[in-house]
Simulated scan of single mutants.
Amino acid sequence: MGILSRTSYIIRSKLNSVLNRAEDPTETLDYSYEQMRDQLQEVKRGIADLTTQKKRLEMQKRRLEDNVEKHNEQARTAVQQDREDLARRALEKKKTKMSQIEDLERQISDLQNQQDQLIEKKNELQNRIEEFRTKKETMKARYEAAEASTTVSEAMTATGEEFEDVGRAIERAEEKTEDMEARSAALDELHESGAFDDVLSDKDNIDRELEQLSADSGVEAELETLKSDMGRGDAEPEPSDDVDVEGEVDEGDIEEMEAEVEDSEIESELAELQDEENN
């Protein structure tokens, strides 16, 4: 294969590939159907033209037949008048017309045969067009269904890939959300435990314990005051009342003694702290 032949073959193959990609089968089927309908119209016009020609010949034949009858009458009249010459001329014209009529009959017969053949071909072509139309619609429906299925499959494939990315994004979002929730819960727990107050405050553990003891002693003193106001406590307890009949110590006296001990211990610790700071 020469260079030009190979080049021509490659060009034709490329063009064929481009045409195959650009071709829409449904449009091709519709175009073919229209072409067949155009052919059918051409055949019908041909039949109409042929029939018109046949009708003209038939009309001409009828005129010649009328002339033949006329020449017959002329010949009879001429014979009655003893004009054989005129009768002979009339018969000659009659013979000429008869010959023309025979030619016309042959032509009309040929046209009739052609017309019958064209009508038969027209009917056959019309049947083929009807069959093609049915097949065309069926093929178009199958092609459109296949095209729709392919489009959906391609969309599902692309969607599947996108869903994978979306799924990974959702997983990352869930992880970040869980981290945020855990961090928020931890911060709430630290806030409730007072860890933030410890960090933000200048007080140490001793200061906070002293404040707690002072608060507790204040609560105890307020509680005793409430008891006294309500008649449940003694304003000035006497030593003889510290022990009841059975020799047990009263609970209110025990609480007052514990409070006095705690206050004395706190005062002692404060005094030691002050001595250490002065030294």
Rank of each mutant, 00 (worst) to 15 (best):
S13W: 05
A195R: 00
L86E: 02
R63I: 07
K14Q: 09
E192C: 06
R232T: 02
Q35K: 11
D250I: 11
E211S: 07
K136A: 15
R6I: 09
I10K: 12
K176G: 04
Y9Q: 11
T225N: 10
E84F: 11
A185V: 04
Y31H: 12
R128A: 03
S184L: 11
T7R: 13
S184Q: 15
L210S: 01
S5F: 02
G247E: 08
L15N: 06
Q117E: 12
R56Y: 11
E42S: 15
E130Y: 03
K95T: 10
E260K: 12
D165R: 11
L270E: 14
E220A: 14
K70L: 14
I101R: 01
Q81C: 07
I3W: 09
A235S: 10
A90V: 00
L200F: 07
M180C: 08
M230S: 13
T138W: 07
D241A: 14
E209M: 12
E154P: 03
K95N: 08
E34R: 10
R12A: 15
N278W: 14
E58Y: 04
T150N: 15
Q39N: 09
I266E: 05
S17H: 04
D244K: 02
Q80D: 15
P237S: 06
R83S: 02
L270M: 13
M1Q: 10
E131S: 11
E161N: 08
E162Y: 10
I47P: 00
P237F: 02
I206R: 11
E211D: 14
V79W: 02
E131C: 01
K136P: 00
N127E: 12
F163P: 00
G252Y: 02
A235P: 02
I170E: 01
M230I: 03
K61T: 07
D116T: 15
R6A: 08
E265C: 08
S240E: 13
S5T: 09
S8C: 10
V249M: 06
G2R: 06
K140E: 03
L50W: 03
E189C: 04
R142N: 13
L118V: 00
K135T: 05
G46V: 02
S184M: 13
V79K: 09
E174D: 14
E23I: 06
E222I: 01
E144D: 07
K122E: 09
E84H: 03
E27T: 08
A22Q: 07
M156H: 08
A221F: 04
E84G: 10
H71T: 08
N205A: 15
L64S: 08
S240I: 07
E238F: 01
M1R: 06
L91F: 03
P239V: 15
R89G: 04
T225H: 14
D234C: 00
T51L: 04
E162V: 12
R106C: 01
